[in-house]
């Protein structure tokens, strides 16, 4: 009986140890990915093996431009929602007209980056894991390697760069869309003119608020790309493996995003 309990404790410890090694391994892999991507971006051109601008541009289209319609819709809805909640809350103090302050700051500092990040985690993070995972299963990654084409240079670096450029741009776009949503609702509910709304909004938003949102969005971009790429490269076990990696990529990138958001918000507001 004692022996059996010992066995169980031991087994639990082994499992904890394995999980810990797995986590460390994953973070280590992220660092390698970042380091290798930087290496190819900086040193690659001198070795005649640059990260292709055309590949970055393609990824920017896929990641960024193609996401604008859905991002506009989501951000607009968030803006409307913030206006509704804000007016409802402030009405209790008779201060409905102050709603613009609430909308402007929460959109730029929080909701813009977060909604963009979550949308891209679902849209691009999963696609990335699935694409690289499928290539891994089909031996396409091996084929690239034996052709002397580094998979990180050819596949990972362009995505990482494209994400880190496009996510902040999309965040700005989301900010504007959400503010616009708020403007439309304030006009209908409070009769606030567009000119007055935008005038107030721009006067409330300081550069620091905007930067806070944009800094976060760059971190989100890196997280989404790294989680997607690392899960893609780690795929084994055929179609089922690709499915697992895709799910993992979405779940983990959204989780990391929210956690990183909390940490950054805390430190940036100290």
């Amino acid at each position: 009986m004692v022996e059996r309990a010992d066995g169980r404790v031991q087994q639990a410890m082994v499992q904890v140890g394995r999980a810990a090694i797995g986590v460390i391994e994953e973070y280590g892999y992220w660092l390698t990915l970042v380091a290798e991507s930087l290496y190819w971006l900086v040193v690659g051109p001198f070795k005649g093996r640059p990260v292709r601008l055309s590949a970055i541009a393609t990824q920017m289209m896929v990641v960024g431009v193609a996401a604008t319609p859905i991002l506009f819709m989501l951000s607009f809805a968030i803006g409307v929602m913030l206006a509704i909640q804000g007016i409802y809350t402030l009405r209790q103090f008779g201060a409905e007209t102050q709603v613009v302050l609430g909308i402007a700051l929460s959109v730029v500092r929080e909701f813009g980056p977060l909604i963009t990040g979550i949308l891209l985690a679902g849209r691009s993070g999963s696609a990335l894991a699935a694409r690289i995972g499928t290539m891994q299963v089909n031996q396409e990654i091996d084929a690239l390697t034996v052709m002397g084409i580094d998979p990180v240079r050819y596949l990972a670096a362009p995505v990482l760069v494209a994400m880190m450029i496009m996510v902040p741009v999309l965040t700005l776009f989301a900010d504007l869309s959400a503010l616009f949503g708020g403007a439309v609702f304030c006009r209908l509910e409070l009769g606030l003119s567009q000119i007055a709304y935008w005038d107030q909004a721009t006067s409330f938003i300081a550069a620091a608020d905007l930067y806070q949102g944009l800094i976060k969005s760059v971190i989100f971009a890196a997280l989404i790309a790294l989680v997607g790429i690392s899960n893609g490269f780690a795929v084994s076990g055929g179609a089922e493996g690709v499915g697992r990696a895709t799910t993992r990529a979405v779940v983990w990138s959204i989780s990391y995003l929210v956690l990183a958001d909390m940490l950054f918000t805390y430190f940036l507001n100290r």
Binding site: T134, N138, Q139, E140, D142, A143, V146, G148
Partner: peptide, 18 residues
């Protein structure tokens, strides 16, 4: 890297980039 320019590999599944 230099060596890999001198060898060619045809994989079983083809492994063409889709």
């Amino acid at each position: 890297h230099k060596l890999r320019r001198d060898i060619g590999v045809a994989f079983q599944s083809g492994a063409l980039l889709s």
